[in-house]
Simulated scan of single mutants.
Amino acid sequence: MAQPLQSYATSTAGGPTGTDSPATVTLCGAYELDQARTHPLLEDLPELVHLPAHLGRHPALRATVDLLAAELERPRLGTDAVVPALLDTLLLHILRAWLDEQRSSVTTAGWAAALNDPVTLAALQAIHRDAARPWTVATLAAEAGLSRAPFARRFATRLGQPPLTYLTWWRMTTAARLLRESDAPLRAIAARVGYASEFAFATAFKRQHGTAPGRYRRGA
């Protein structure tokens, strides 16, 4: 889970002396990440994401930057609430823009490739939309519009793991979030992530996280 820091910095530098170059404005923000619970997409990101300022290429990103700059230059009522929300929005637009830039890449594996592949994306969306459904490779393949074997190969090539392995990971990640953020009983959480048996859920959770659900909740 990411927690945006509640402090921000800006700096402005003019162009080279004697030129009419526009000023450069630097906006700095940061996120604190729990390294034990980061999304695998973050592992695929380069250390630096550079998005050239091509006019009109990423209008939503440009608009978000402008809104954030305006709030920081002229704080008003509600700025403390607006800025963190805009930082979240900015991060999402940066990730979207980066993924769009990867469409022309020859990379066939990793999250960028998976999210740009309509077959893998359809399966991921189905899993995320209804993790409790009793998914099989065949039913996920049907969601993606392929037969079972080609779908399984394509999914594994893109994400580096079979569909049902990813399904279990997503279910246990969702369960961990529910344990941290809610008081729902274990049987209810188990049902929400597709387990009719609380014992089977606890076994799968411990295999994924190395501890029982109840102990995980107490230590969260």
Rank of each mutant, 00 (worst) to 15 (best):
M1L: 11
P4M: 05
Q6H: 13
T10S: 13
S11K: 14
A13W: 08
G18M: 10
D20N: 12
D20A: 15
D20T: 14
P22C: 01
A23N: 10
V25C: 06
T26V: 13
T26F: 01
G29H: 12
Y31E: 11
R37P: 02
P40C: 09
L41H: 07
E43I: 02
E43M: 07
D44R: 01
D44N: 09
A53G: 08
L55E: 15
R57E: 14
R57M: 11
A63K: 10
T64Q: 08
D66P: 00
D66N: 08
L68A: 08
A70G: 07
E71H: 14
E71A: 14
E73N: 12
R74F: 01
L77Y: 07
L77T: 14
D80P: 03
V82I: 13
V82P: 02
V83R: 05
P84F: 04
A97N: 09
W98R: 05
W98D: 09
L99F: 11
E101W: 06
E101R: 09
Q102C: 12
R103D: 05
S104C: 12
T108R: 15
G110D: 09
W111L: 02
A112Q: 13
A113G: 06
L115R: 09
N116W: 05
D117K: 00
T120Y: 05
L121N: 07
A131M: 10
A132I: 00
W135T: 00
T136H: 04
V137C: 02
A138T: 15
A138H: 12
T139A: 10
T139D: 10
E143S: 12
L146D: 11
P150W: 02
F151K: 05
A152K: 09
R153E: 11
R154Q: 13
A156F: 05
A156P: 01
R158A: 15
R158T: 04
R158W: 03
Q161V: 09
P163A: 03
L164K: 04
T165E: 14
T165D: 11
T168K: 11
W169S: 11
A176T: 09
L178D: 10
S182L: 11
S182T: 15
D183T: 15
D183M: 05
R187K: 13
A190T: 06
Y195V: 05
E198Q: 13
A200H: 13
F201W: 01
A204M: 05
F205E: 10
R207C: 01
G210Y: 07
G214K: 12
Y216T: 04
G219L: 15
A220Y: 03
A220M: 11
